[in-house]
Computed example of a mutant assay.
Amino acid sequence: MAFRGPKVWLWRWRRNPLKRRADAVEAWVLLATWVLTVLAGVLAGLTTARTVEQGMARERVEWRPVVALLAEQAPGTSDARSRTTTAEQVWAKVRWSARDGSTHTGQARVHPGSGVGTPVTVWTDPQGRLVTRPATPSEARTRATLVGGLAGVCAAFVPFVAGRALRSRLESRRIDQWGYEWARFGPLWGGRMRGTG
């Protein structure tokens, strides 16, 4: 079992006659890794969150509710209870007119058993295509925070892994150097120890 003394904070930055150049390089690599990890994570997270929130704000401005009419009988049977919950809605073909007057058709969620010609509110983009209802400002903030956080973690992962790989390589090189120095000076040291006995 290897002996480990008490942990000394920032030992790579302290003056020490036994400190080698490799220790100083490793200290700078460690510092650069943490700085880049934090910067990459924060910048990517904030940029992504802002972009997502701006995109959703644009959707709230551009997407409009339109009254569409059922083009076919909706599957299922009409029930007063099912009209109160959206969980029991079914997909049916609807028809609506875009701002330019062109007619469009698509699938929308409607109450079961609704008849042909029943009005249904759908959301469309500026080109008249069906879209989902835009997110509210609070929903947009929550979604932007989640996506930004995920992007930040992913972006921070890259410099963190690169720094760990570089540090591992430096440590391997240092161990090889120790082995070389031990092979070179170990026999001299051992002979000196025998001579003093």
Score class of each variant (00 low, 15 high):
Q177L: 14
T85W: 01
P159L: 13
H111M: 02
H111Y: 00
G55W: 04
V61M: 15
P159Y: 09
Q89G: 11
R129Y: 12
L150E: 06
F157L: 15
V158Y: 06
A71I: 03
V66M: 05
P75A: 10
G148A: 12
D100E: 07
E139F: 01
A151K: 05
A183E: 15
Y180P: 00
S168E: 06
R164I: 12
R164H: 11
Q89F: 15
G148D: 04
T124R: 07
P137R: 09
E88T: 15
L150R: 08
P126Q: 12
T77C: 02
K93Y: 06
R99V: 07
G115N: 03
S82K: 14
P159S: 10
P65F: 01
P134R: 07
V66D: 00
R173C: 01
A144P: 00
G106Y: 04
E181F: 10
P65L: 04
V116D: 00
L166E: 01
A183D: 15
V161C: 08
G115A: 14
R83V: 11
L69I: 08
T77M: 09
F157D: 11
P65H: 03
M56R: 15
R95Q: 09
Q73K: 11
S102D: 09
E181Q: 13
A74S: 04
G106Q: 03
V90Y: 05
P126I: 12
R81W: 10
E59N: 12
T132S: 11
Q177A: 13
S168Y: 01
W123F: 05
H111G: 02
